[in-house]
Amino acid sequence: MDSREKEAGRYLGYGKHAIDEKTWSLVKNCFQELDRTVKSRIVYRIFELETPDEGRVKIGGLNITSRNLAKNMKGCEKGVILGATLGIEADMLMRRYSLTDMSKAVVLQACGAAMLEEFLDSWQKEYAEEAKKEGYYLRPRFSPGYGDFDISCQESILRMLDSAKKIGLTMTDGYMLTPTKSVTAVIGMSREHVPCHKKGCEECAKTDCIYRR
């Protein structure tokens, strides 16, 4: 089982349990269909970043009030803002299988999420190499909606990236990203290498979550 299959299992609530044979073959089948149908796209920009105090982050003219983000960005002088999406094709697939095969729709949902994460991980790995050459180290991705990083920041982030035009990433009036399989995030860049293993789940205060790593 490869790493994205494992991730999909986690999103499906399997936790540390083994995935049953039937579900696993469905997971494989869904990844195949996604690989065939969707195209991951990303847009990113680098901005100057500062953390004036413990509760605020300033990045490229955007002022964010968030203790969690400020903690994550401490010591960074630049930051990446990024947006990525699997596009509307993924949404269509899920809609379609919601009508004919609900278990597949649910598995597709999980596989789509895992696929997007994997795409971002591999992009970040590559970009980290590039940044290292210029003497910068990358922090983990941090997205609006995590902790106290307000989801309403989506609007400014999308505008700063011109994401609608660049990759077709937009949002609803309620700050939901559309297409639904999309992510925006901030990545801190610091001169100093701070070993920082905390990401996603481990950072989250909801310790009773069944999807926790």
Binding site: L12, G13, Y14, I19, K22, T23, D101, S103, V106
Partner: peptide, 11 residues
Amino acid sequence: VFLPQLLMSAD
């Protein structure tokens, strides 16, 4: 039993 299995049974 996990969600995909629950739904397979449902289908």
